[in-house]
């Protein structure tokens, strides 16, 4: 029996059309239009200019590196959480959710305070007689910020999937003669794929598109594709070019998601 009329969904559908679909179409429109109103691919082609291409390459590289680091830290963490009595709904999960509830600008700022030329780390280093380190305003600082900001988003989805793996499956694998390594590579990892995929999505895309972390920890000296797009909109007011570059970035996002979905045959990567 139908509980209610489908009309209940109409405010939602209207909102999606006005708030999501039309705005995205307007990016497409501006991205393919020149300032005098004609159709052009120049805004898209601008990605091949030296500065833009370099920014895109650096963005891809930094996003990739921080995603891999997050994954390498998160997977063992998820496995430990799974076996820990503090895991399920407990203290440790709480520990990883809490930073996500804190404004990520403040968290990024914290690293700025730590890494600054006259910051906490350098003060400690000089106090014990070691030379100052210029970490700030390097790609390394940006990677550090990305890993710090996005790590919980990698741990939780993986933990959610890993913690739901039926213990009997592991027992069955051992019973059939598998050793620990085989169980890990042939049972645990394949079953964790949905969590890994959604973790990667939740780290890679914000890392690829960020302009905040690079601005705060790169001191305006390191330009990522996000910074360039942001500047086109807020400083140069060139919406056409900004939209064109956004379209190119969207293409990269879509490609990376399609690649990821190939791995996740269940298609059910859960955020929860």
């Amino acid at each position: 029996m139908i509980i209610a009329n489908k009309k209940w969904a109409s405010p939602f559908i209207i909102w999606i059309i006005i708030g999501t679909i039309i705005p995205i179409l307007s990016i497409v429109y501006y991205g393919m239009t020149s300032k005098d109103g004609g159709v052009t691919f120049a805004n898209l082609g601008a990605i091949f200019s030296h500065d833009n291409l370099q920014a895109l390459e650096l963005s891809l590289l930094l996003a990739l590196v921080s995603t891999i680091i997050c994954l390498l830290i998160a997977f063992p963490m998820a496995m430990i959480l799974k076996d820990s009595k503090y895991g399920k709904q407990g203290f440790l999960i709480f520990v990883f959710i809490l930073p996500m509830w804190m404004n990520f600008l403040l968290r990024t700022m914290a690293w700025q305070v730590l890494l600054e030329r006259n910051g906490v780390i350098n003060s400690i280093l000089t106090a014990v007689g070691l030379p100052r380190q210029a970490i700030m305003n390097t790609p390394g600082a940006i990677i550090l910020g990305m890993v710090y900001d996005f790590l919980p988003f990698m741990i939780l989805p993986i933990y959610n999937v890993v913690s739901k793996i039926d213990k009997h499956l592991l027992e069955a694998a051992y019973d059939l003669g598998a050793n620990k390594i085989t169980v890990f590579t042939k049972v645990i990892i394949p079953l964790s794929v949905p969590g890994i995929v959604s973790g990667i999505t939740m780290v890679f895309i914000p890392a690829l598109t960020t302009f905040v972390i690079s601005n705060m920890l790169g001191g305006g000296k390191i330009n990522l594709i996000g910074n360039i797009i942001e500047q086109e909109f807020t400083v140069n007011s060139n919406w056409y070019l900004g939209s064109g570059l956004s379209l190119v970035m969207m293409v990269f996002i879509i490609i990376s998601m399609l690649l990821l979905n190939k791995f996740d045959k269940t298609g059910g990567a859960s955020l929860v």
């Binding site: 705005p23 995205i24 909109f233 956004s246």
Partner: peptide, 10 residues
């Protein structure tokens, strides 16, 4: 699924 920057710009 979209990047926040794209949603914001759009």
């Amino acid at each position: 699924l979209n990047a926040d920057i794209v949603t914001g710009i759009s």
